[in-house]
Amino acid sequence: MSEAIAMEARELGKKYRRGWALRDLSFRLPAGRVCALVGPNGAGKSTFLGAATRLVRPTTGTLELFGVPVTDPAVLPRFAFLAQDKPLYKRFTVAETLRTGRELNPGWDQAAAERIVRAGDIALDAKVGTLSGGQRTRVAFALAFGKRPQLLLLDEPMADLDPLARHELSGLLLAEAAEHGTTVLMSSHVLADLEEMCDFLLVLAGGRLRMAGDTDALLPAHTLLTGAAEDGALPRELTEGCTVVEHRVTGRQFTALVRSEGPRAELPDGPWETAVPGLEEVLLGHLRPSEAPPLITAAARPSTPLEAA
């Protein structure tokens, strides 16, 4: 038996009246990872998080958290969700907010929740409506961690925080997750956050999965090439020899992000320079429209129906 699976999606799709917000999403997220959910606005990140938190009913496919389908209410104690706007009852005090968590969750950890709140110098009898943005986020974190979830789902958790609060709360997030072995899945636009915190990537664009896998496995699969363009285009050996994720031609020079995985692991030789791309370059390459097939590493590939049966 391999390691535990925190999340497994099979052909997950959501169609709104305007069209598909999410389509054919199939991947698995091994337990214990800190996973970044990346994608341009409208890529389907929020829809996906909604499906995982039972706030959106998928049109097609299945989604399981730790083997429990999200359609089953038994999945509720397993995850905690922090929505982007961190909804809290404004008229409640901090203590009452924590009590909400205690009253509604059988596995509630009051000590952990209080510790998180106190570490931020927040008075328990302060009204939530009077707190600053960073303090509110901290209370929302306390509510999420107090639930003792196996999977923590965060939608843009650091978006509205100043750099100091961002640093403080990302430290808190990583410490708590490491202490309890919590799997974390967070959507974010901030590449720096991702580079520091995440060891697993899910990249969505246009409602489809573009890339999924461990950061360690994804990055080395890519190479950044720079060389002389041929007639204002990429050299033919390149386009035929490997998967070009993205390329740009500026004057007589081209830059290309290519993928060298699978049977043709060797890059074709030629008059170009190679460089190891950073996370940012790989992400940007996949966020832009591209004809390259999605890259899903072995760790992120869902079990086939045969295996599952």
Binding site: T53, R54, L88
Partner: peptide, 15 residues
């Protein structure tokens, strides 16, 4: 105020 998302993602079912 969006708190419906808070209330319905605790451990009690929506029903």
């Amino acid at each position: 105020h969006g708190t419906v998302r808070l209330a319905t993602t605790q451990s009690v079912s929506r029903t």
